[in-house]
Simulated assay, not measured.
Amino acid sequence: MPIIESTYKPPFWAKKSFVSTVFSGLARRVNGVMQTRERITLEDGDFLDLDWSYSEKPSHKVIVLLHGLEGHAQRPYITGTAKLFNEKDIDACAVNFRGCSGEPNRLFRSYHSGATEDLEAVIQHILTKGQYSEIYIKGISLGANMALKYSGEREQLPKELKAIVAVSSPCHLKGSCDALMSLKNKHYAIRFLAHLKDKLKPKLEQFPQDISVTDFNAIKTLIDFDDAYTSKAHGFKNALDYYEQASSLQYLPNITIPTLIINSLNDSFLSAECYPVKEAKQNPNLYLEMPKYGGHVGFINKGNVYYNEKRALDFVNQL
């Protein structure tokens, strides 16, 4: 499809990428979302915690929400979407990836950008409820890459899955990692790495045969982390192999359902490869919107309803 011309206009104070990104991540609050937790057991014996919120009347529609790196289902970028969709008679299932719900997961492995087998388990679980004839997926950042990969790598999708929305998507993981590790993003990279290492630390005692203290102490950068842990724990040769195999960019030509990507042009976490203009022009199911502003998941708008949240609702309602 042709590239969508964005109508997003941020408040004057939120035009800078750093301001919109940090405000949205640290200062935004969303109230009034009542979540009910459901735990599902996965085939490998691990678990996922799903945080459900519901519309006032019974609904046959549900949106599956996927968070970003070291996020969880209570982040405002998740609850903001859940609240808006609930108000419009659509249920929301906010997924906590393995180890992200406040309780460590059981296995040495955890989650990563391409772990679509866990998303598949969530979709199949929702289908067993027999309630929902329309399912949408909205992914943020890491979750956006996962949603796009899920929809593009499968020859057949459930007929109930009607649309995908991907926001601030690092479609090209190596490029995005390089961007994140650049000098201008050093403060973000340090913060992410600290969280990741804190979560990995208990696994040193739990799984000493899989990772040593020496390996752990050698982790100084995000690529080091993906070399020492992410790749090894999830069946990849090394960090570069993980980035190559898990990137959604290569799967975009295969997407067969309406899919909207919203990546702002001033998102400092994204590299040039994360703006799939060619793929969008060649695939009639793929819509690419590139607002001038918005930073990384920072589409601040009036009334505490973010632009990407309203766009997601409009997109699924047009189907």
Score class of each variant (00 low, 15 high):
200 L>A: 04
63 I>D: 03
299 F>I: 03
7 T>V: 11
227 D>G: 00
96 N>Q: 06
49 D>K: 01
51 D>F: 00
149 K>D: 11
269 F>M: 06
4 I>T: 14
131 Q>V: 14
143 G>N: 06
7 T>G: 13
312 A>E: 02
75 R>G: 03
236 F>K: 03
97 F>M: 12
25 G>K: 12
210 D>K: 01
101 S>H: 06
150 Y>K: 09
61 K>P: 02
198 D>T: 12
10 P>K: 08
59 S>T: 04
216 F>I: 02
84 L>E: 10
249 L>H: 10
175 G>S: 12
148 L>R: 05
99 G>L: 09
284 P>C: 09
131 Q>L: 15
288 L>C: 12
278 K>E: 15
293 Y>A: 04
204 L>F: 01
27 A>H: 11
127 L>C: 09
24 S>I: 11
161 L>V: 08
189 A>I: 04
156 Q>G: 08
116 T>F: 09
199 K>H: 13
201 K>M: 10
17 S>H: 11
169 S>C: 15
58 P>Q: 15
55 S>E: 11
223 I>T: 13
151 S>H: 13
265 L>F: 08
114 G>H: 03
262 I>W: 06
90 I>K: 02
140 I>L: 15
153 E>G: 07
200 L>H: 01
229 Y>F: 09
295 G>D: 06
227 D>M: 00
92 A>H: 04
223 I>V: 13
230 T>V: 05
201 K>C: 04
166 A>E: 08
227 D>L: 01
67 H>Y: 05
109 R>N: 14
78 I>C: 00
257 I>R: 08
256 T>Q: 15
205 E>R: 00
287 Y>R: 13
90 I>T: 03
206 Q>A: 04
64 V>P: 00
245 Q>L: 13
144 A>G: 09
286 L>A: 10
82 A>F: 02
124 Q>M: 13
33 V>Q: 10
201 K>P: 01
164 I>R: 06
148 L>A: 11
218 A>C: 09
315 F>N: 00
190 I>T: 13
37 R>W: 02
68 G>M: 07
298 G>H: 02
168 S>I: 08
113 S>V: 05
36 T>C: 07
14 A>E: 05
8 Y>V: 03
293 Y>H: 09
260 L>E: 05
204 L>N: 00
92 A>T: 04
94 A>M: 07
225 F>M: 01
182 S>C: 11
185 N>T: 07
118 D>T: 03
261 I>Q: 08
130 G>A: 11
287 Y>E: 07
105 N>F: 06
201 K>G: 06
189 A>C: 04
315 F>W: 03
72 H>K: 09
204 L>C: 01
227 D>H: 02
116 T>L: 10
41 T>N: 10
265 L>S: 12
129 K>D: 07
187 H>L: 14
309 E>D: 12
4 I>V: 15
195 H>D: 15
285 N>A: 14
286 L>G: 05
69 L>K: 05
99 G>H: 09
17 S>I: 10
168 S>W: 07
269 F>Q: 02
36 T>A: 13
126 I>A: 02
101 S>M: 06
52 W>Y: 12
65 L>T: 00
200 L>T: 01
302 K>D: 09
